[in-house]
């Protein structure tokens, strides 16, 4: 018995070493930094220990802006992308001819580079000296005034960012949900038809419960992914996100470390810890709900 335990640890050792060196050690380090005031990475010194870093970050208007952006992004895009993905998968599942073609088309954005998609969005939305962008051209056909989506009002920028995020995450969710739908055994629908179940009840009473584990998987990973968003914002609004007012929490952490006004590992660590706590809380809540609602 003892020997067996030893062997098990031996097999785990490589993974434990790597995880320890590249995950747990940095995590603990970040935690320590976040409580050390004015830590200097060059001299490895600090002024003292306390909650000052947190208080600074929480009073920083840029952080509050990033926090607001991130929350908006999460609240808007996670339900929207999951909902759309469900609709699209249901559609894909109910067509017979060309289903594979459509599935491939819907999956294409997933294998496309984020920045390339950003470029396409620029063409669609950005105002330049020569053109107002395709979307504005479209709006003007219907008699609307042109809007600057990239450098204009906050809601317009937020709209583009959300649209972009939904677009980026959609293919993966569609992929997961189409396979989840396809794996629901046909016989349940047959049984339901015999029982005279309406289409709507079939969806709510059979399809949804059957694929609920996958939906919750997508919601949880969606939440986590959206909280960690950064590259999407950069792809659309460039690297000076604070100036654009479109920073995210991860963007704020990056700026604090390496940005033009960077060099504050303590503040970055504090912000990282705050993000960690937020994500952890939301995920725990999600899991608690899913335990109640998800079948099996």
């Amino acid at each position: 018995m003892k020997k067996k335990g030893f062997k098990a640890w031996l097999y785990l050792l490589p993974a434990v070493i790597f995880l320890g060196a590249f995950m747990f050690y940095p995590l603990i380090d970040v935690f320590v930094y976040s409580f050390e005031e004015g830590y200097n990475s060059a001299s490895q010194t600090s002024f003292g220990v306390g909650g000052y870093n947190f208080s600074y970050v929480l009073h920083d208007p840029y952080f509050m802006q990033a926090l607001q952006n991130t929350f908006l992004l999460v609240i808007i895009t996670v339900p929207l992308s999951t909902g759309f993905a469900l609709l699209i998968s249901l559609g894909l599942n109910s067509i017979k001819p060309l289903r594979n073609l459509f599935q491939t088309i819907y999956f294409l954005p997933y294998v496309t580079n984020t920045l390339a998609v950003g470029l396409v969005f620029m063409i669609l939305f950005k105002k330049t000296a020569y053109t107002d962008g395709l979307v504005n051209a479209f709006i003007s056909i219907f008699g609307g005034g042109s809007v600057d989506f990239i450098d204009g009002p906050y809601w317009a920028k937020m709209f583009v960012l959300c649209l972009y995020t939904v677009w980026i995450v959609l293919p993966f969710k569609v992929l997961i949900l189409t396979s989840a739908l396809a794996s629901v055994n046909e016989m349940y629908y047959k049984a339901a038809r015999i029982d005279g179940t309406s289409k709507f009840r079939m969806f709510t009473k059979i399809t949804l419960p059957m694929i609920s584990p996958m939906i919750f998987y997508l919601v949880i990973t969606g939440f986590i992914g959206a909280f960690k968003a950064y590259s999407d914002s950069v792809a659309l609004f460039g690297t000076d996100l604070n100036a654009a007012g479109m920073n995210t929490i991860v963007g704020y952490i990056y700026d604090m470390l390496y940005g033009d006004s960077g060099g504050y590992p303590s503040y970055a660590s504090a912000a990282a810890i705050i993000l960690f706590v937020i994500v952890l809380t939301i995920t725990v809540i999600n899991l608690m709900i899913s335990r109640k609602k998800v079948h099996y």
Binding site: N185, M187, Y188, K190, I194, P209, H295, Y296
Partner: peptide
């Protein structure tokens, strides 16, 4: 007005 019992029963697992 029929009742059908499937080979694999098709009971709703949830």
């Amino acid at each position: 007005g029929i009742g059908l019992v499937f080979q694999n029963y098709a009971l709703y697992p949830h």
